[in-house]
């Protein structure tokens, strides 16, 4: 079952008098539970696709369907609620909130809407996530007291805390050294397997994309490869 569908999506940006065609009729679908990667050189449209799937941007033409719901025409309030209930985000620059500590950063998305868990369940769930990302000793630390890898681990836990169906990661290893980046991808893969959460991440690192079970390759705003089930149960070599 497709959890994300893009149908003939185009996205045109206007920069002054010039028009930039970031996407030129992209069509693909991602299945629930996929560990999908979008690859391509800079400017190929990776981030634009993630923004459209993440409902933080709207296509110029075409349809973006998330969990069976088309996103066009929805109000900002509805889109915000949709993001909160369905999506998690991991950013290249981690984007942790500096005034909150590790625990509070992870808890943050839970405080933005209805939380069905009790206080005790919430605490246990956050501690499980923190333990899973290996930061149980750093619960009280602020983001400026963590290394890049640790910050991205917190970001992974934060993205998963609302049990979203889809986690979007835009170049999650872009600001990390290769070893740390590899461990983050392994962590994401582990969470994908443990929680059956769909992960969609962009990268231009060929070694990292090998772990994905669905690869979408872009070039100049067009899909040039859409291959599935490459390494379904695999890992990094």
């Amino acid at each position: 079952m497709a959890i994300v569908e893009l149908e003939k999506v185009t996205r045109v940006y206007t920069l002054g008098k010039a028009e930039v065609h970031a996407l030129r009729g992209v069509t693909f679908a991602i299945e629930k539970g996929d560990f999908a990667t979008i690859i391509g050189p800079s400017g190929s449209g990776k981030s634009t696709i993630l923004n459209l799937i993440g409902c933080i941007d709207q296509p110029t033409e075409g349809k973006v369907i998330i969990n069976g719901k088309p996103t066009q025409g929805l109000t900002d309030k509805v889109l915000t609620t949709l993001r909160h209930e369905t999506l998690g985000f991991i950013f290249q620059s981690f984007n942790l909130i500096p005034v909150l500590n590790v625990y509070e950063n992870i808890e943050f998305p839970l405080l933005l809407g209805r939380n069905k868990m009790s206080k005790k369940e919430t605490k246990e769930w956050i501690e499980y996530l923190v333990e899973s990302v290996g930061l149980i000793e750093r619960l009280d630390h602020k983001s400026n007291e963590l290394s890049g890898g640790q910050r991205q681990r917190v970001a992974v836990a934060r993205a998963l805390v609302t049990r979203p169906e889809i986690v979007l990661a835009d170049e999650p290893t872009g600001n990390l050294d290769s070893k740390t980046g590899q461990s983050i991808i392994e962590l994401m893969k582990k969470m994908n397997a443990d929680l059956n959460t769909t992960f969609i991440f962009s990268t231009h690192d060929a070694t990292i994309m090998d772990i994905a079970d669905h690869v979408i390759r872009l070039l100049d705003g067009l899909v040039v490869e859409n291959s599935k089930n490459r390494v379904r149960a695999g890992g990094l070599s």
Partner: peptide
């Protein structure tokens, strides 16, 4: 500005 974007991405409404 990025912090605002992050909070919005995670589902914080404009009024918040």
């Amino acid at each position: 500005i990025r912090e605002i974007g992050t909070m919005r991405a995670f589902g914080m409404q404009r009024r918040e």
